[in-house]
Design a binder for these strands. Sequence first.
DNA 1: CAGGATCCGTACTGATACTG
DNA 2: CAGTATCAGTACGGATCCTG
Lengths: 109, 109
Amino acid sequence: MATGKEKAVKKEVSCPVEATLRAIGGRWKVLILHHLLGGTKRFGELTRALKGVSARTLTKQLRELEACGVIHRKVYPQIPPMVEYSLTAVGKQLEPVLMAMHDWGEKHG
Amino acid sequence: MATGKEKAVKKEVSCPVEATLRAIGGRWKVLILHHLLGGTKRFGELTRALKGVSARTLTKQLRELEACGVIHRKVYPQIPPMVEYSLTAVGKQLEPVLMAMHDWGEKHG
DNA sequence: CAGGATCCGTACTGATACTG
DNA sequence: CAGTATCAGTACGGATCCTG
């Protein structure tokens, strides 16, 4: 399943580290976060920046990040529609995590 | 699939952050790492420490961490068998990542 | 433009039973 | 004790078509 109807079970999370992993553990989430660290982006910009992602998947990952309070979604009610995504204050605090992961991944991985 | 015969496809990884996520992104991996930061553990100890994990899943996650060079598996050829898991030097360098994730998860998540 | 709807293959993980 | 084999459910993510 993957249509939005799937139950959000997600098991219990006790450890804070687990919680963080659940927040950023998606296929594209760290990339999305990385791009948003560079500033506000539109949906189309993200689609192009993350070469290979489908609109459905990108939408879903963005919605999940939004649900975690990590990013903000701003809709401009116009035709054609325009939607901007940006990091919230909480999301910006993920930068140290991303940095630490970047450092490790560069040396190893 | 989940028997060890599954192909390790895993898509391409360009960004170092992605690489790190792939290494520690499993359901139990950060917990395993966290426990191993406290020192060498046997299989049974990990099974009990990670309440709820099945032997099959734990084995698989340990093997993946081993394949990444993050942990070391030491087998004592005896009856009954004894296997010890410990962090490698590379694995220990993941500590800053775990710490950053812990800090964020504590405040949010 | 930014998605929603639908269909689908694959990966991840658990449960259970069995073994050297 | 430390797994392995098998069965099975669920989640994840892609492809394609459609729409306000």
